[in-house]
Design a protein around this nucleic acid. Structure first.
Lengths: 298, 298
DNA sequence: AAGTGATATAAATTTTATTTATGTATTTTA
DNA sequence: TAAAATACATAAATAAAATTTATATCACTT
């Protein structure tokens, strides 16, 4: 083990400057402090490292050998320090975020855009995964934080912050115009041709569970992979689409789709950002987290 | 500049052990001392480097980056320390000696043999050069010490120690038996067929100067490159050989050559070891120097 | 829920480094 | 050649720092 690494720093500077006084200036300490540090190192190694010459000191053979190693070593550590400071100053680094298609498109995207504009040197990696998988990635430290939609099984060691609300709605096109502005019973969904997401999505299972709880059992006409597709199908009046409002928003405003109203309120869901309380986030991720939760922080 | 290199050593050990307590044991200091050093480093860098886990601590992303550098750097310096200690312990290294053929053969060789046997890991480099060149090599630090024969121009900054005497003698073989046991005048050399060394050797110039000073002007029959050759020529009675006694010693004892006696004493010369007082010698060279000058040291 | 293992914190002590003042050697300059 | 300047070494006093001891806290385990 090295007894006093600090004295190797002094050694590096003296060798570099070829002068005790010069090293003292570079190190912002007094000349005797440098002399002592060198003497300490020499005593410890049992070898002279410098000898006096006209305008300073020169390395002995032993000193030369030592310096060839210390030079590389010291500069390596100094480089490491620089790299870390770069991370801290957001001049380099990487953030890893887990998000679903939905949370990415309707929540995260604008934040990422702004973030990337402000910190162009930070690499952003978004891992697209469903909620449970995202939570698993969090626990193993493979992502810095996740953006998921409720509901999900809350586990210990997670900090969860809701960042916005989303609504599950049913939309239809011209062919179903008779239902517009009518207040429907949930039961009536059983009689309508439904267009839903695949079963393995949280949006779908959430809706299924809600309907079942209310004694409504539906058998969708279409099961599609993406919400966008559902909207397209609804636009062509192939059925009544079950989607999160954001996907249909443009068409609702345009009037080419309308929202079905029910006499029971469909419970609202949330987008949440989630991070581990066990694993601290890298500086860059922390910055984005603060952006995303601004005004939402507890 | 790195503010406190010592704390990087602690960092290295904590990262290596994955534990503050473990690092404390490895470093033979108390656990709080380690905690503090890490906290100091974290404060200085403005970043967390570790976070707590079940049985110790783990590196944060920033810590990982830093460690990738510090690991190499620290180990590099530690390796340098090891190498220097090896030099000190004579487990490696190199000595560079300047010597003439004569000083090497009739003085240095047995020392080198013993030295190499005792320290087989030390590389020995002998530079064969005439005295003035050897002195120049000394001053530029290209050799650690030299072994030369007097006379030579003494310069400042040199430590010179005579280590043995040598004698210049004249030897002859059977054909010149008439001169055996006679006391000759130096002048008689002018009438004898002389076998000498080349003019560019100190042995030759020294003898020439001595003879001239005594009003003797010789014109050698043979000028040869090596003393050994002179002896061979003398053995065949091609003339009277002018050599340093050692070259002829065996044949003198054997009786196949004899030494001419003169009524003037030819001044003795010396082998001297010479080193710079300005440039300290490496450890290994110092050891050999001590061997060579043992009992001769001032 | 209590106990264990590990890290954090705080205050006192000890050690260490640093500075100031001075000495010494060598080199430069007048 | 002498004097001045430059640079490193040394010593003692001071200042700073790291280390230790004692204790608190936290998390995981049983």
């Amino acid at each position: 083990m090295i007894t006093n690494l600090e004295s190797y720093k002094v050694f590096y500077y003296v060798a570099k400057a070829g002068s005790v006084t010069g090293a003292a200036k570079a190190l912002s300490i007094s000349q005797p402090a440098v002399s002592q540090a060198i003497r300490q190192l020499e005593n410890h190694l049992g070898t002279e490292l410098f000898y006096r010459v006209s305008r300073g000191v020169k390395l002995t053979r032993e000193g030369q050998l030592l310096f060839s190693y210390v030079e590389k070593g010291y500069e390596q550590i100094a480089l490491g320090q620089e790299k870390v400071l770069q991370l801290k100053n957001m001049e380099s680094g990487e953030i890893r975020i887990g998000a679903s298609d939905m949370t990415l498109q309707y929540f995260l995207l604008p934040y990422l855009e702004k973030f990337h504009e402000k910190y162009p040197d930070i690499k952003v990696v978004v891992t697209n995964a469903p909620t449970p998988e995202t939570l698993a990635l969090l626990e193993t430290g493979r992502i810095d934080f996740g953006v998921v939609s409720t509901p999900f099984g809350e586990e210990a060691g997670l900090e969860i912050l809701p960042v916005r609300e989303i609504e599950d709605i049913f939309v239809a096109g011209r062919r179903f115009i008779a239902y517009k502005n009518k207040t429907l019973d949930l039961q009536e969904l059983e009689t309508l041709p439904l267009i839903c997401l695949d079963k393995n999505t949280s949006t779908r299972t959430c809706m299924d569970e809600y309907l079942e709880k209310n004694g409504v059992f539906v058998q969708p006409e279409f099961e599609l992979a993406t919400s966008d597709m559902i909207v397209q199908f609804a636009l062509r009046s192939l059925g009544v689409g079950s989607v999160v409002r954001d996907f249909a928003q443009d068409y609702l405003e345009e009037g080419v789709l309308f929202e079905l109203r029910f006499n029971r309120i469909i419970p609202k869901r949330q987008f949440c950002v989630v991070r581990s309380t066990k694993i601290p986030m890298p500086v860059a991720a922390d910055r984005l987290w603060k952006d995303v939760t601004k005004g939402t922080e507890v």
